[in-house]
Amino acid sequence: MSLPFPSPSDPAAGRTEVFLRYLDFFRESIVEKVATLPEPELRASRLSSGWTPLEMLKHLRYVELRWIEWGFQGRDVPAPWGDRRDDRWYVAPDETLGSLVADLRAQGAHTRAVVEAADLETVGPPGPRWEGAEPPTLERILFHLVQEYARHTGHVDVVVELAGGSVGE
């Protein structure tokens, strides 16, 4: 089911709702676009950088994990860079579109719960995520996540179009 684009003219209860609408929209847009690809295209790269659509799904799940759980919440995350192996994105042969989509959506649900329970001006605890820098506010983290999703949605658009999949928003 496609989520409507979160138009700036749509009423919102506040900035928190706006951030969550954009994150939900981009997350589901990427899932829908990748799901249009045939199985061989999910694990193949059409770009010289070498990333695959499944790697992108896994990467985005870990982006949210790093910024929200490991960073903002200050949780001990055993493998915050679990989307990488040998300094590149990695998906194991037994990881599937279904499992990666479920993981991404579960991470999105966690992000939503954390964001809805906090004030945007809240600063999380210092920790290894920040490498000694002052932790940012939740609002700054959400700005970063929105730009990360927007940028990667564009990347996925190009890859899906090259593979003959659906085009457009």
Rank of each mutant, 00 (worst) to 15 (best):
A118H: 15
V158I: 15
L23E: 07
W51L: 08
A102H: 13
L142I: 11
V158F: 09
E39K: 10
A106W: 02
P6V: 07
L142D: 04
F143I: 03
I141S: 10
E69M: 05
H59G: 03
R105E: 07
E32C: 10
A109Y: 00
D86R: 06
W89K: 05
F19Q: 07
R66G: 12
K33Y: 05
L97W: 08
D83I: 05
A109P: 00
Q73M: 15
E116L: 13
L97D: 00
V31K: 12
G14H: 13
L23D: 01
G98N: 11
V160D: 05
W51P: 02
R21Y: 03
P128L: 06
A79H: 14
A106N: 12
T52S: 15
V159W: 11
P125H: 07
T96Y: 09
Y90M: 00
K33F: 11
G14A: 04
E32Y: 00
S7I: 02
V167T: 13
F5K: 01
S2E: 14
R21C: 03
A44C: 09
L23T: 08
R112Y: 01
L162H: 14
P11Q: 11
A44L: 08
L120T: 02
R43W: 11
F72V: 08
V114A: 10
R85F: 02
G124K: 01
V101Y: 12
L104K: 01
R140L: 14
V114N: 03
V63C: 15
D83H: 10
P78A: 15
I68L: 08
S45L: 11
G164V: 07
E148L: 09
S7M: 04
V63I: 02
I141E: 06
E116Q: 15
A118M: 12
S48A: 11
H110D: 00
T122G: 06
A35Q: 14
P4R: 11
T36A: 15
P136N: 04
E134W: 02
T36C: 12
E131N: 05
A106F: 00
L42Q: 13
R66D: 00
L3I: 05
